[in-house]
Amino acid sequence: MLNKTTLTPLIAPRDLSADTRARLDVLTEELASGRFADIGRALSSDFSTFSRISHALRTQDARQGALSRAGTWLDSVQTAMSSIQSIGSRVTEGLTSALVPGGSGQVDAIAATASGALTDIAVAIGYKLGGRAVFANGDPSGRPPVDIDALVAETIALATSATDVSELLQAFDDYFATGGGFETNVLSAYPADPTVFPLGGGMSLSIPVAAGDMSIRDALKQTALIASLPDAGFEIDDTARKTLSRELPVRASMVVSGLVSTQAELGGVQARVSRFLDTLGTERAKLEARKSEAVGADPFQTAAKVQAEMTRLETIYSVTARRANLRLTDYLR
């Protein structure tokens, strides 16, 4: 049985311009984007080259993501290293005046400054990125790389047992040396291998720094030594002050040199990251150009097609307008 719904397509006026307008929309999009809307038509249904280019671009994106993460990691380490150097300089600046002949109050004051600096250094090397300790080779355990409470307790014990400045300095050197108490009692058991960022193609990038590195140990040693002076097992008299004022500035200079050397090494890795990113950017631009060329639409041909469809659409509208003005008697003539 026929009803209004089934008869609608038969009795309703036909939209003769629908197909033309649809083609015009597609062509306008192609003209704006510079690409064929139908990729299969552009590639003659041969997707092999296009697929290889797309895969290469995805690989480039993955490598660029890894490099970006490595760059962020390196920036965090560099910032922390700069903080450690700045903290050490704060202690060193007051060292000379604290060791001139005079009362013990000056030594107590510089020791208090050094004690606060130890805490600040511990905060700097305890920094985490994405839940991983940057100075513990990416350890996700949550343990601090350095047990600062154990460090303070054990270095105070070293100072208390020393009978003169030479013995104090030697005790600290032994404690922070390879295999010493710092390694066995204070340094956390973080992974031995450095943090590595795989870049694909058999390449990777490692971050060559950790809390156990000598440059960081020396910074901790210098600061802890100064912080422990009020607890020394000997009197800090003029003779002791003279020896300390000769030895400690030299050691402070060595600490700065070690930190700068580590930062320079990190800077070299950052330069590699920058070069990799530049290379990837160049390669990506070439791949994008090849991809665009494969599916690119000639703008002149597309514009000509747009013009042709516009002419066809105007003709349809013109014919429709003339028909709309005709009366039934005109058709019956």
Rank of each mutant, 00 (worst) to 15 (best):
V255Y: 04
A153R: 15
L118E: 03
V134Y: 12
A117S: 14
R272M: 01
E29A: 12
L7R: 11
S115P: 03
S245Y: 07
A303V: 01
S292D: 14
L266R: 08
L205G: 07
D108P: 06
I148D: 15
S253W: 04
R251W: 07
V152K: 15
L74T: 02
S76P: 03
G116R: 05
G40Q: 11
R35V: 05
A98W: 11
T239M: 07
Y190T: 05
A264C: 01
A297Q: 06
A285E: 15
R246M: 01
V209S: 08
T59H: 04
S257D: 14
V273C: 02
S261K: 08
S86D: 12
A252G: 06
P230M: 10
F172V: 05
N137F: 12
V77I: 07
D120R: 05
L229H: 11
V319F: 13
L99K: 05
I236E: 07
E309C: 00
L169D: 03
L332T: 13
I226N: 04
D173L: 01
V100F: 11
L244Q: 06
L287A: 09
Y127R: 14
T184N: 11
F197I: 01
K4A: 12
A189P: 03
P144D: 13
T79L: 08
R217D: 03
A98D: 08
S274E: 03
E93S: 13
L328Y: 15
S82H: 11
V100T: 13
Y190S: 04
A32G: 02
T155K: 13
S215K: 00
R275K: 10
G258N: 11
S141T: 15
P299L: 00
V269E: 01
S44D: 15
M214A: 07
Q301K: 08
R14F: 00
L280N: 14
R69I: 00
P144H: 12
V123S: 11
I110S: 09
T6H: 02
D330H: 15
E288H: 14
T163L: 05
K128G: 09
V260T: 09
N325F: 01
S318V: 00
A289G: 10
F47L: 13
A240R: 06
T20W: 00
S17R: 11
A112G: 03
E29G: 14
D231N: 14
R217S: 07
F36V: 09
V26N: 02
V209C: 08
S141C: 10
S44H: 15
A171L: 08
T315I: 08
F182S: 04
L259N: 02
A294V: 01
Y317W: 05
S245V: 12
G138S: 02
T302N: 01
Q263W: 00
L244V: 02
V260Q: 11
Y175D: 02
I84Q: 02
R90F: 11
T5F: 06
T195R: 12
I316Q: 08
V100P: 10
A112N: 10
G105S: 12
V260F: 03
Q64D: 08
V273D: 03
T262K: 08
T311C: 00
G65V: 01
G179M: 06
R312Q: 04
T96W: 04
S274A: 09
I316A: 00
G201S: 08
E309Q: 10
N137C: 14
T184V: 03
T163C: 07
W73A: 01
G94K: 09
A304K: 05
L266S: 05
S51C: 05
L225S: 09
